[in-house]
Amino acid sequence: MHARSTTLMADPDHLDAGITDVRDSVLPAVSEMDGCVGLSMLCDRDSGRCIVTTAWESEAAMAATSEAIRRMRERAAEEFGATAPEVREWEIAAMHRLHAPGDAACARVTWSRVDPATIDRVLDVFRTDLIPRMDEMPGFRSLSLLLDRQTGDNSLTAVYADRRAMEASRQRAMYIRDEFRRRLHMSATEVAEFDVALHHLRVPELV
Results as ranks from 00 to 15, higher is better:
115 D>V: 10
99 H>C: 09
195 D>F: 11
17 A>G: 12
134 M>N: 08
46 D>E: 15
137 M>G: 06
168 A>K: 07
149 R>G: 01
29 A>P: 00
135 D>V: 13
19 I>P: 00
116 P>W: 13
152 G>K: 15
138 P>E: 04
132 P>W: 00
181 R>D: 13
182 R>S: 13
68 A>D: 14
156 L>H: 05
86 E>Y: 08
23 R>L: 09
177 R>Y: 04
73 R>M: 15
60 A>H: 10
193 E>G: 09
65 T>A: 15
35 G>F: 02
42 L>I: 01
38 G>E: 02
156 L>A: 02
135 D>A: 14
10 A>L: 05
109 V>D: 11
85 P>D: 10
147 L>E: 03
101 P>Y: 12
114 V>D: 03
165 A>D: 06
162 D>K: 00
144 S>W: 03
189 T>I: 13
195 D>Q: 10
62 M>Q: 11
12 P>L: 03
56 W>Q: 05
19 I>K: 05
78 E>Y: 05
25 S>P: 06
172 R>H: 14
97 R>G: 11
127 R>P: 09
189 T>A: 07
69 I>Y: 09
93 A>N: 00
189 T>W: 04
122 V>R: 04
23 R>I: 10
165 A>K: 00
58 S>H: 04
35 G>H: 05
111 W>T: 15
119 I>L: 11
48 G>M: 08
160 Y>E: 02
99 H>P: 06
92 I>N: 12
173 A>H: 07
125 V>A: 05
180 F>E: 04
96 H>W: 12
158 A>K: 04
101 P>N: 13
4 R>E: 09
11 D>P: 10
139 G>K: 12
43 C>N: 11
142 S>I: 05
150 Q>P: 01
161 A>N: 11
52 V>G: 10
2 H>Q: 15
71 R>H: 09
93 A>E: 03
1 M>P: 03
185 H>E: 13
138 P>G: 08
21 D>N: 12
191 V>A: 05
207 V>A: 01
169 S>H: 00
173 A>Q: 13
107 A>D: 05
169 S>R: 07
80 F>Q: 03
191 V>G: 00
144 S>C: 06
49 R>M: 15
87 V>C: 04
194 F>I: 00
45 R>V: 08
18 G>E: 02
191 V>W: 02
61 A>V: 09
62 M>H: 03
135 D>G: 06
124 D>T: 12
55 A>Y: 15
125 V>N: 01
55 A>W: 11
173 A>P: 10
125 V>K: 06
31 S>Q: 08
